[in-house]
Design a protein around this nucleic acid. Structure first.
Length: 428
DNA sequence: TGACGTCAAGATCCG
DNA sequence: CGGATCTTGACGTCA
């Protein structure tokens, strides 16, 4: 059971998008256009629904109450290449997943990518966009989920004339079925439509608007307003049937081009953003490469308060940290000694610090030997020889740390060591 | 015409 | 041959 901190009755959720990392066998499957026969599509869809269900279980166990479902759940769903009546074939599976979502009080969403363009000039592209929106709607409808579970879309292209591009968006929006309209929400993007423009469209058409902080940073409105002011403006576009206001939060990757997301959420910066929120009655979708790891980080820092959570996180991070810096490893152990305190921010700051450490071969070997310690008694002669060989090859520089870890992961899988399999050591 | 973004499939390379 | 690594695919817009 989730015990939230006192937030004046507000109901905050923080979630992540599409994929779950740090766990084996959580990957979705797909196929290429030429392999879209009924049999393989059926297999893939069945597999993907199983994975989705596993992810939702994981989310529930970890108090993650918001999640974006990947558009790749059904391959080529809105293409004539997929002739399956998948919504009937897997009706019960969808219903079960929907029940799972509702039981966990989870909020899910979907987000067609940048290639679904409702305001295109080419009517064929518009038709495909509508079909794609119908697909996304069908997934959520099949699950029996209410209209609080949203589908988020960008406005689309500009085509050298924004006024008529917006007019086309508006006209084509009117063509959509009511089932789609009641789920559709719109978002400011990183190059074409600012939050101010999206708000104008949203207000005119009665569509809830999602504020994306990074897109707003990269593609600012002419009207200068603070993030908090834009969030308040967007809040007004959310009606009762839409549920609590949603926003997107991400941070700029300093090594990549404008709008690129960071590997992980920088916790200090997130807490600053969180504390400045005008209303905690809001749901935050994180857009970040390390997915659920950052979601856990942000949730544990802002919504929860139980030292056990940090201890669990520490169990998952410890060998990674040990490999990066035995010094930081020692600092974190000290930090977590006092069971009455809840030093979440300091804990995650130290974790973040360990990411910045250069590879040190002595530390890498030390951490690998700690992992090997779990197998040294059960491993057979060949595996023992292999491990020694791998370590020596690493020291000589002929084997990368990445491969060294992959081989240790294989042992963890073979000997079914759940404690190790939960460790981020293998995945970071 | 290629970059953009995203992920897994597919292809190729290596020991 | 199995496993690691590189390339392709699928989408539409914009420079």
């Amino acid at each position: 059971m989730i015990v939230y901190k006192e937030m004046g009755g507000a109901y905050m959720k923080i979630g992540y998008a599409c994929l779950t990392m740090g766990l084996p066998d959580y990957g979705f499957k797909s196929c290429t256009l030429k392999n879209t026969d009924n049999h393989s599509l059926t297999q893939i869809i069945s597999h993907n629904l199983t994975i989705l269900s596993k992810i939702l279980d994981y989310n529930e166990k970890n108090s993650i109450t918001m999640f974006r479902i990947t558009s790749d759940l059904i391959p080529f769903a809105s293409s004539p290449a997929n002739k399956l009546i998948w919504w009937n074939l897997f009706k019960d599976r969808f219903t079960d997943i929907g029940k799972q979502v509702m039981r966990a009080n989870m909020r899910v969403s979907m987000h067609p990518g940048q290639y679904t363009v409702l305001n295109a000039i080419d009517e064929k592209i518009v038709e495909r966009a509508i079909e794609d929106l119908e697909y996304h709607t069908k997934v959520l409808d099949c699950m029996g989920l209410s209209s609080e579970h949203k589908i988020i879309l960008h406005i689309g292209g500009v085509y050298g004339d924004k006024t008529s591009a917006i007019k086309r968006f508006s006209d084509n929006y009117q063509r959509l079925k009511e089932t789609i309209k009641k789920r559709l929400i719109i978002e400011n993007d990183d190059r074409s439509y600012t939050i101010e423009e999206v708000l104008r469209i949203g207000i005119q058409l009665g569509i809830p608007v999602v504020f994306d902080n990074l897109h707003n940073e990269v593609n600012a409105s002419i009207t200068s307003k603070t993030e908090q002011e834009w969030i308040i403006e967007c809040q007004k576009t959310w009606k009762d049937r839409d549920g609590i206001q949603k926003i997107h939060y991400s941070q700029q990757n300093p090594n990549k081009q404008k709008g690129s997301h960071t590997e992980s959420i920088h916790i200090e910066k997130f807490v600053q953003f969180y504390e400045k929120l005008p209303d905690k009655n809001i749901n935050i979708m994180l857009e970040v490469k390390d997915k659920n790891l950052s979601a856990l980080k942000c949730i544990n820092t802002t919504l929860l308060s139980d030292i056990k959570l940090l201890e669990e996180e520490w169990a998952r991070y410890k060998y990674f940290v040990l490999e990066k810096s035995p010094n930081i490893y020692g600092q974190i152990r000290q930090l977590l000694k006092d069971k009455k305190k809840y030093p979440a921010i300091g804990f995650y700051q130290l974790i973040e610090e360990s990411f910045n450490c250069e590879e040190n071969s002595g530390y890498v070997v030390n951490a690998a030997q700690h992992i090997w310690g779990y197998f040294s008694k059960v491993a057979d002669t060949k595996e023992k020889e292999q491990f020694t060989k791998n370590i020596n090859a690493y020291i000589e520089g002929t084997l990368s740390v990445k491969i060294l870890k992959k081989r240790l992961l294989k042992l963890a899988l073979k000997y079914k060591n759940d404690y190790l399999l939960d460790s981020y050591y293998f995945y970071l």
